[in-house]
Design a protein around this nucleic acid. Structure first.
Lengths: 165, 165
DNA sequence: CGCTTCTTTCAGAAATTTGTGAAGTTAAGG
DNA sequence: CCTTAACTTCACAAATTTCTGAAAGAAGCG
């Protein structure tokens, strides 16, 4: 018994959480494998797992892990690290930072703004549709600044509540 | 010439905007047809189009319009209305309200919170993973309140900038 | 009430996406 | 350098999703 690296933890409870949280992420638009890998990391003891551990725990191929991790790293939800002097890679969820990545939709917002700006120009700023788009554009520009301020307040709030843990 | 309901507007410019904005929405996770229908409404003169108009402008079947509109109505991005005394339905984008729907991820956030709460309980609030999830949970709870306040500020800002439009 | 017009539902064809095995690539360690 | 352990890429099979035509379902109007 208890021969796994996760000795002492209820494997079934972990798996249940992983699958249910992953399902929510999928529903919100995340790729399935990425969601499962991420949930597994989030519920792991140290917040770090190797490719092999993920592959075994989730019953997926190394190729699937590779694809999922690439996505998660690109979106800054996990970071990859090498154990020094080893070919083994480890993937880490940054605890207090991953959810900041969630709100960092800056790139997405920028592209929306771009498309809207083009729309305003090509339809004309004085047309009803142009005005509608201009207002939407203003909304996104407003939001962009607000989010930064909001995250600043969160960090302060977090400090108070959890310490610098 | 100019026999369409959109007389006086550059159909090609409209189409170009529709497709490029829709592409951004798709990339952010929206269904393709829903994205196209929504973009068409956003760039329409009055912010209102009938099912037939959408079907023709986007070159899609009535069935596709039906599916797209159902999704958009569910997510409060458009509303449906009946022309009084007609079987014809009209779909409207609410100008200043659709993007509020975008930020109204309340249902999504609630479900995430539910999954996280369960995770904290089943893994134990005193385990490292439990603490990590509790912090994430606190983040979402914080965000929920902040977003409401942010939208309040936006409405004030909008009033100043655009009048009550 | 029945006719007509518009919308929705449904089954299926087509296209897309997903995850795998296998080959390819990189780098540690003898 | 050569071997070996790991990760990545690629082509393909399977599963899923998407969109359509056709038929069924509402609702106005005579």
């Amino acid at each position: 018994m208890r021969e796994s690296a996760q000795a002492g933890r209820d494997a079934e409870a972990v798996s249940k959480f992983v699958e249910s949280f992953a399902a929510q992420l999928v529903e919100a638009g995340m790729q399935r494998m990425a969601a499962r890998v991420f949930a597994a990391l989030l519920s792991s003891d140290k917040g770090v797992l190797t490719s092999a551990e993920l592959s075994e725990q989730l019953q997926i191929s190394p190729a699937a892990v590779s694809g999922a991790v690439r996505y998660l790293a690109q979106t800054h939800m996990v970071s990859r690290e090498r154990e020094p002097g080893s070919r083994r890679e480890r993937y880490r969820v940054h605890g207090d930072q991953w959810y900041e990545a969630l709100t960092n939709r800056e790139a997405v917002i920028k592209r929306w703004e771009g498309a809207l700006r083009e729309g305003v120009n090509s339809l004309g700023p004085d047309t009803p549709a142009g005005r509608r788009m201009a207002e939407t554009l203003a909304f996104f520009e407003f939001i962009e600044g607000e989010i930064a301020a909001m995250m600043e307040r969160w960090r302060a709030h977090r400090e108070r509540t959890f310490g610098q843990g």
